[in-house]
Design a protein around this nucleic acid. Sequence first.
DNA 1: CTAGAATCGGACTGGCGACTCCGTTTCAAA
DNA 2: TTTGAAACGGAGTCGCCAGTCCGATTCTAG
Lengths: 190, 190
Amino acid sequence: MSDAPERPLRADAARNRAKLLDAATEVFTTRGVGVPTEEIARAAGVGVGTLFRHFPTKEALLEAVMVRRLETITARTAQLAAEAEPAEAFFACFRLVVDQSAGKNEFVRALAAAGVDVHASLQESTTAMRTQLAGLLSGAQRTGAVRPDLGLPELLALLVGTGATMEQLPADPSARERIYEVVFDGLRPH
Amino acid sequence: MSDAPERPLRADAARNRAKLLDAATEVFTTRGVGVPTEEIARAAGVGVGTLFRHFPTKEALLEAVMVRRLETITARTAQLAAEAEPAEAFFACFRLVVDQSAGKNEFVRALAAAGVDVHASLQESTTAMRTQLAGLLSGAQRTGAVRPDLGLPELLALLVGTGATMEQLPADPSARERIYEVVFDGLRPH
DNA sequence: CTAGAATCGGACTGGCGACTCCGTTTCAAA
DNA sequence: TTTGAAACGGAGTCGCCAGTCCGATTCTAG
């Protein structure tokens, strides 16, 4: 489209960029998106100047983190979808997304609150994810494992909501499991 | 305990306090807790000075709003619990709480993030609510309408999570209804 | 009606945090 | 090695917002 010329980054620049992304992922997920940029820079072992040279805006950094996460999840989802039969794959992916989305709801909120209609790069990644999920859903419905009246919007909402449910729970694995039982039972027909 | 003397508020002061609470409830729920205090004061038709005289801190205002909401919900819950039989009351209250909690998750987060171990007044209200819900839950379990392995923590988490689910949904009443079907189905035994 | 106490309003302050600027350092092409 | 372009770091700027202060206003007791 438009990103044609792009000279390759200098070695140190590429290294710093990667360190920033890692640090930002870590800090944002554990301490929330409110953490000052300077702390992220410090965690990455670089100066704020460097941070803002790579990501012109705090929001841009947030977006980059989201994109990477989404891509990871989408890839694993695709793998699962290919390996297992529809119903099994569907429920496995549901777990995967919920488990991986700890704290991510807050990201989405932060981005949305920033007035952005989700920038191009993010748009792209979310679309890929949605496509995956839509396929999984209709596959599972075709085999009768999931009630047929659910659409993609409901599935998406349930994924986010189940993530929120898990965040509220004390770190008790058996309670988590019970929540999954409730939701999965509800997803099955009748 | 300690709030003994409390002279009654002057007429205008009481009026302004009420206007502030109403405005804050409205603004916080529709535009989020990040809205500057000045806007809340303007929405209430008073100056910031007045706002801070009634609520020494933005956080205190947030808390007051929460308390009022919780008390309202708790009262309605109690009423429902008294009028209907256990199972019916349980599910009706579940709906009530979820419907009324639009945007409230964000409040709780904001308070928790402020480092407060939830101040005394809020503590009290939440305890009342929890007691209500605990009663409702065990009642519904006794009649066999709800799976017996669920505890209060799971119920609380599911209430918050279902609220989050609803917030993600496009404003489509039938989709909302489908979500309730999923969750309620999952809550029932087997 | 009047005084003075309670309240009000909004200009002002202080601190915080996103982002900029530029002298210094590091890389890599020749 | 040399050299200039690329990248770095972090002190400094700027705007925003919670919370303060005090002269002006509005209640209400007598």
